[in-house]
């Protein structure tokens, strides 16, 4: 069976990109790379313009005149190219970063600190269940020693150094677990391409 045009396009582009790792840099790869960068960027711009229209321009043109302020601030970003007016581009950046930091602070305090400490404050000794006791001790030891590792202002003597070393071991365990997860993420990208190649070859042969 002859595959459809779309399959040929997908296979051609996939082979062109993979040729970089499986062979070496070549014109087919560079062409595919240029296409990828161009279309990705084009798509980002299309979506950004639609987002701007949806949340800014349409309501502004519909009579919500207060939105003229953020639109004007947004346009000020483009003064970054001007030597004389370049500093004006910092004003909209200040609004964005101010709002972003404000949101991050209020959320982080609740979710990343309060909730995390609450979840750590569990009974450590669970009578009649040695495994649960071991688990609780391990989690608490991991949290406390890792946090101690980041206490740069306190030396803590030999005992403190031992706690920090323990914290380092706990972090290494976490990094190892992370690497295992990273491998899973990245391998799935290859599995998707391998599936496409096998399906294409199968369709050619049947």
């Amino acid at each position: 069976m002859i595959p459809a045009l779309e399959s040929w396009v997908a296979i051609g582009l996939t082979v062109a990109v993979l040729s970089y790792v499986l062979y070496r840099e070549n014109p087919a790869y560079r062409m595919a790379e240029a296409l990828f960068v161009g279309i990705s960027l084009g798509n980002v711009v299309v979506m950004a313009v639609r987002s701007l229209q949806s949340s800014g321009m349409n309501p502004l043109l519909g009579g919500n005149l207060t939105l003229a302020i953020p639109v004007a601030l947004g346009l000020l970003l483009f003064t970054v190219y001007s030597k004389r007016l370049g500093k004006l581009s910092q004003w909209p950046v200040a609004v964005m970063s101010g709002v972003g930091v404000g949101l991050a602070i209020r959320g982080a305090a609740h979710t990343y600190i309060y909730d995390q400490i609450k979840a750590s404050m569990q009974p450590v000794i669970i009578w009649g269940d040695p495994m649960a006791t071991l688990n609780a001790v391990l989690v608490l030891a991991g949290v406390v020693s890792t946090l101690t590792y980041f206490l740069f202002t306190v030396e803590g003597g030999a005992g403190g150094a031992r706690v920090k070393t323990t914290g380092r071991y706990f972090m290494m365990l976490f990094f190892g677990a992370m690497f295992g997860q990273v491998a899973m993420t990245r391998i799935t990208y290859i599995t998707g391409r391998a599936q496409l190649l096998v399906q294409f070859l199968t369709s050619l042969l049947t």
Partner: peptide, 11 residues
């Protein structure tokens, strides 16, 4: 669809 702003948009 998409809206810019990440956490600001989500809030």
């Amino acid at each position: 669809g998409y809206a810019a702003g990440d956490e600001t948009m989500i809030a």
